[in-house]
Structure formats: C-alpha cells, structure tokens
Design a binder for these strands. Structure first.
Lengths: 216, 216
DNA sequence: CAATTACGGTACCAATAGTAACCGAATTTG
DNA sequence: CAAATTCGGTTACTATTGGTACCGTAATTG
C-alpha cells in the first residue's frame, strides 16, 4: 500500500533514499516511544536521534503519526514466529498467550504500543493496532475452531485477549505464567486444579451486612 | 487533596470564585473530550465553550491536564449508585457489570475516558483512572468474597473487567447483555446454557493442515 | 556532462500551553 | 462607607512544536 515500488518500471532518476536513514528513523521512533512516551517524541528529537534532519522524515512520511505507525508496524512484523498448533486446546492457548505476553511485556514494542494505545483519533495508529488485534483474534479462532470449545468462542477470545490487555496496559502489571494458567482454565471451563468443585448456586450465601458496593 | 478549603479558618477575603464558572469549565472539558477527543481540547476552546477566559482556568487548576482530570473525577462521582448485593454471585455480577457498561458505553463519561485512557504519562490522569479502577476491583471482590468462587478471584476479576475494557476501549464495540451473560457463565465455570458439556481434553482433535497461526 | 532527487541545515509559519498585565466589578473586613 | 483583595474577561507575550520552504552538496541516470 504505502510502498512506492510496484516491482515494474525503471528506477526513478536522482539520488535514491538511503535505507540506512529510513531504518534509523524507524528505530529512533520506536525507542523514543518506548522510553519517553508519545509526548516526548517530537519530530526534531526523532530526527536528531537518528542523526538526520526533519526533512528526511517528511520526505518519507506525510506526518509524524505516519512515521510512528510505520515504526510500530515494522516492529510487529519483526516479532517471533507463530506458536505452533499442538492439537490440545489448553496447551495451544498457553503457548500462544505466553508468546504474546513475551512479545508485549518488557520489550520496546510493548512499551511503545502502550504509549500510543489510546490515540485512536489518529487513523494511521488506529489501523496498525487494529491489524495486530485482528491477527491475534484470527490466531485464537484457529485454535478454538472445530473443538468442543467452539461455543461462545468470541467471548472466550475477548476474555483472554482482554486479560492480557487489561493487565499490561491498564493495570501496568506483568502477566505471569500462573495468570495465563488460571485464565486458560477458567475460560475453558476446566475444573481449576486448586479450587473446589464449582457450585452454581452457593445459596443466598450469605451477605453479612457489608458496606455498599462502590461504583463504578 | 486539591480542595483549598479545609473546613477551618476564615474565608479568604476578596471576591470568591464563581461556582457557576467552575462548573461550566468542568462540563466543557468533559463534553469536548467526549465529542472531539483530547487533541481538540485546547484551553482556549474549553474556555470559550464555558463562556469564560483562559485566566479562569489557570486560577483554578495549575495546568490543562488537571482540569481534564477534575472533569473526569466529577463525572465519575456523579454516576448511578452502586449495584446492591443480592446474595447470588452470578446475579450480582450481571447487575454490577450491566451498570458499569451502562455508565461507560454511549455516555459522555465513557467517551471522555476512552479519549484519555492511554495518557498515563500525565500523573493527574493516571491517578483518576487508577482510582476508578481500584473502586471497581473492590466492588467485585465484595461480590466474590466468602463464596465458593473465591479461588482465582483476582484472575476472575481481571477477566471480567478486562472484557469490558477490551470491548469498549480497544475493539470499539458495545457490550451486550448476552456478552455479559456469557462472560459471567464462563468466569464462574457454570455450564454454559447453550453449549454442550465441556470436554477437558477433546483429543488431539484434530488439526487438519491449516495455515500457520499468525502472530502476534 | 545535464537532469533529477536525496541529504543535512537553517529559516520560517501557524497553533497552542502557559504567563503577565490590565481594568472594572464583586465581596469581605474594619 | 472605605480599604483591601480577588475575581472576571481581554489582550499581549514567550516558548515549543508540527509542518513547509529554501539552500548548497552528494549520488544516481542517461
């Protein structure tokens, strides 16, 4: 889409863009986002960090947001290969979620995404995040489909991805292997290893006068 | 904390601040945030919308972010009363989550929160969102505590709040009563009403050669 | 060589957060 | 009532930043 070269035709005459400069700008953007947040990522600073000029930015992207989006996209395309299907749903989910958490937690990419994750006003950023989200959904569907857990599949996916997003981006806390284990167990409706058998109706069981529930 | 009046002492001499102006500014901030996003909420525009001046803003708050945080706090303190405890966990959760979704979905408060939900760099904003989050957690703990669902309570809470947050703020989709129903059933480990009995190990069941799982 | 385009640098413009100065009016204290 | 004080609204100012324009130089095509 964004790429100028459609394979065919001759090279445009004139000095070609230096790939080194492009890469340095993408890198500077990702690292600055991760280390200092979106606010600190001014065009001048990104250019300086990449040891180039503002003009080099605007020759490649129409605006700052597009550069930021491109840096996220590049980093997303660099992350580790997909989790292999092993045939067991619980195992597949554990593996996929572990990989996902590993890619988003305590990595420049993860911090960068966190720093822009609510700037949905910027279509460029919204699009990148949407693409990544769609890919994760698709992956999880492939794990669930044609298994006995297909019922409420979309809700199960929302619960799992929501957990990761919530803990990492809202609560600013790490997602531990135990968290993943517990979530997978609950979402698959397996009897939790350490919890007693569930009791659908624990009686009106019984609320001693407790303080009113705060809201929201 | 922020309030100047600590009950005691005499009133400061001189003309008092007009409550009407303060309210108009808080209102203008919330509505502008909701309707046009954080980017569009310039101090000049907020002041104009409140039919007052920039100076009126800076007499009340040290900076723009503090005004925005105050407007969110005020709106959060205005929302409907807590969901009453009814003694049945599933019922309590449904009710609490319905109220939460109603307060955050298709309301100015909800849209305003969405527009600032990733500006964690601003301590003022992070604090308000954190307070709201803590209150919700506390409420859900009061529903779970002393029931047979206490095991993995924190993960169950993360799953439920994560689902709401994820659908509303990440996927930009509404949370329907059916969504809540399905989530509560899954998180409580109840047999889903429309799904067949869960099968903990659906065999290696069986992955026909499918495309590799995309990631992340 | 001539044409073209990138490179890095500087200068510039428009918008915005925040500050300062002003003056009339309101309110409290004495 | 008089003095002191603070508010209310207006205008002007500074500093920062996104984005544009122009410069002389370097690299590439023909």
């Amino acid at each position: 889409m964004t790429g100028p070269s459609l394979s065919s035709q001759s090279a445009p005459s004139g000095r070609p863009q230096a790939e080194r400069v492009t890469a340095a700008l993408l890198d500077a953007a990702l690292l600055t986002l991760a280390e200092e947040g979106f606010e600190a990522a001014t065009v001048a600073r990104l250019a300086a960090r990449a040891r180039t000029s503002k003009q080099a930015v605007y020759r490649r992207w129409p605006d700052k947001t597009s550069l930021v989006a491109a840096s996220l996209r590049a980093a997303l395309n660099r992350v580790s290969p997909p989790a292999p299907r092993r045939g067991n749903v619980a195992q597949d989910l554990r593996l996929y979620l572990s990989n996902l958490v590993e890619a988003l937690q305590d990595t420049p990419l993860g911090r960068a995404i966190k720093s822009v994750s609510a700037l949905k006003n910027q279509p460029q950023l919204a699009a990148v995040l949407q693409e990544a989200e769609d890919a994760r959904r698709l992956a999880l569907r492939q794990i669930f489909i044609a298994t006995s857990f297909e019922a409420d599949m979309e809700t199960r996916i929302d619960l799992l991805l929501g957990l990761v997003y919530f803990k990492l981006h809202v609560r600013d806390q790490p997602v531990s292997p135990d968290d993943i284990e517990a979530a997978v167990h609950l979402v698959l409706g397996l009897t939790a290893p350490k919890s007693p058998a569930v009791n659908p109706h624990p009686g009106t069981g019984n609320t001693p006068d407790r303080a009113p529930v705060p809201f929201p």
